[in-house]
């Protein structure tokens, strides 16, 4: 089997050496180049076209996320593995959206990095377990927030529309054929769901979130 060519991008020189030594000991992995600076790395990668790039996120000058976007565009077939200290979902999300298909923490062992390399090389993706949990929690948080927005009942949307016409509680009650107390109850739950402090605020939020036109 042909050896896998790898390019390392990390501003920490000793760390790059350690990774190189560790990977080359495997036999079928070859480090074809390395750089501590994003712009230089992008140029070299466009020329060398390695099978894999291992990228750090925090670097002086051009950040890792920007580098990932550039090299993914320059060499679309290449696999990109993020190797970083940060487990925050935002980085994972941005990196994978930018073109990375592996995400490994520097605090992980050698096995995790090797697993990621094998997986990405075979066309799959690899997220380290420590990264996956916060990411899922974060996505669940998004889902909860989205869910709340779609929770407005038809009646509440009608009340909102009346509000945006500047109608008073009395007028809303008669136009929807419900009691004024019911209107007040709807308003209360609307404020709650929208996070609004008063009528005008509720309408403003609803317009912004395009709940009404």
């Amino acid at each position: 089997m042909k050896a896998t060519s790898i390019y390392l991008i990390d501003d920490h020189h000793v760390l790059r050496q350690a990774i190189a030594t560790m990977l080359e000991a495997e036999g079928d992995l070859v480090i074809v180049g390395q750089s501590g600076e994003g712009r230089a790395a992008i140029n070299e990668i466009a020329e060398l076209k390695p099978d894999l790039a291992i990228v750090d996120l925090k670097m002086p000058g051009m950040g890792g996320l920007a580098v990932i976007g550039e090299i993914a565009r320059a060499v679309p077939k290449m696999g990109i593995i993020v190797f970083t200290m940060y487990d925050n979902p935002a980085y994972v999300w941005e990196a994978t959206n930018g073109g990375a298909s592996g995400y490994v923490l520097k605090s992980a062992g050698k096995d995790d990095l090797l697993r990621a390399i094998r997986a990405v090389r075979s066309g799959a993706a690899y997220l380290q377990a420590e990264v996956t949990k916060p990411l899922l929690q974060r996505l669940a948080q998004d889902a909860r927030e989205q869910g709340r927005k779609s929770l407005l009942s038809t009646r509440e949307v009608q009340v909102l529309e009346c509000l945006s016409d500047g109608q008073s509680n009395k007028v809303i009650a008669s136009s929807l054929a419900i009691s004024e107390d019911t209107v007040k109850a709807h308003l209360k739950s609307l404020y709650e769901k929208l996070g609004a402090s008063d009528r005008a605020h509720a309408v403003a939020i609803a317009l912004r979130q395009q709940l009404i036109e």
Binding site: A90, P134, Q137, R138, Q141, R144, E145, R148, G195, I205
Partner: peptide, 20 residues
């Protein structure tokens, strides 16, 4: 959002976030 996502599994109360 990240902080709340992390916290919401560790706190004994229901944590709701309304961010515009």
């Amino acid at each position: 959002r990240e902080y709340v996502a992390r916290m919401s599994v560790n706190v004994p109360f229901d944590l709701t976030l309304k961010i515009d």
